[in-house]
Design a protein around this nucleic acid. Structure first.
Lengths: 167, 167
DNA sequence: TATTGTTATACTCTATAACTATA
DNA sequence: TATAGTTATAGAGTATAACAATA
């Protein structure tokens, strides 16, 4: 029986390897920020939109709202951001970056670009530019296309499923 | 102060979103296999190379060797693979897929391709083909380029680091 | 002594639900 | 009633070190 799967065509494997490598490589770069690369992303959102609520940031970044609470607690302790009650709806809190947070962000960005260059290192210029264009576009699509969860329905129509386990 | 970082150019964010979407979407597809998509990858390696040792598979897949032990315990209980002592070096164990394991693998592959198509759904044909070529190539490079760990040295040369925290 | 694999421990993430305060 | 945020708990995943067997 020939096996169709090999690692060269397994996108999941490739994504995992690349993502892990990215996280590993950026760990030292984002060491100043609680939560590492995730804290960095929160800081980015807070800096680019001072009216962003916890919930909005969490949704955009795929972070659970309960995790967001802990993360922001740490980031506030580190003086990177501040929570401010929205006067219009006192349930929601805006996350705003402090001056110090902005300086850390700028510094981190600079070093992050170096790491990204290193990660994408041996790709040709064409390939690199293609990736830098396609990856964010795809991510945006997936982020808006919310219910990725239920692919089982799509998939269960194709056949009888695997053979019963020999017990 | 203009902020250089925005999410559109943040490869880390894009990778995270895409990887999480992939894992989420494949969870139901790989439900037959202990460890989900990771168990699937182990099964793939075992099927494509019956002489692959635990250590070799773990290294290739970026799985800790202690995790590999638990994972293989579960996969053996599920009758998907067997451990066989290498006659040449009795410390190492080969991981071989069972007949049942191969059938589960084939079935899973089929459904996985559907999920991948769905994930890459709205990309143009050109973009999809570009991704399917670049991603695995990059992953291979990163996997061989072992010491991704120490980018701090590269990075620490560029400047004084962030400003001191205001206390 | 070095390596493969196993076991045990602790630590970090994450998911879930219950709770508050607002609307 | 529904929503934003918080808190507490339990579970999964992960890292670490100590250990046995073999080289």
């Amino acid at each position: 029986m020939p096996v169709a799967a090999n690692l060269d065509t397994d996108i999941g494997w490739a994504l995992g390897v690349i993502f892990r490598a990215y996280v590993k490589a950026t760990t030292s770069v984002t060491a100043d920020i609680p939560g590492g690369h995730r804290g960095f992303q929160v800081l980015t959102r807070a800096a680019s939109n001072p009216l962003a609520s916890q919930r909005a940031i969490a949704q955009q970044l795929g972070i659970d709202r309960t995790v967001m609470t802990y993360l922001l607690d740490d980031m506030e302790k580190a003086k990177l951001v501040q929570r401010r009650a929205d006067p219009a709806d006192r349930r929601t809190r805006h996350v705003v970056a402090t001056e110090y947070g902005l300086s850390v962000l700028a510094d981190t960005c600079e070093r992050l670009n170096l790491v990204e260059s290193h990660i994408l290192g041996k790709l040709s210029n064409d390939d690199r530019q293609a990736l830098m264009a396609i990856l964010p576009a795809l991510a945006h699509q997936l982020n808006e296309l919310d219910p990725i969860t239920d692919l089982c329905e799509v998939v269960q129509d194709i056949g009888a499923g695997p053979q019963p386990r020999p017990d």
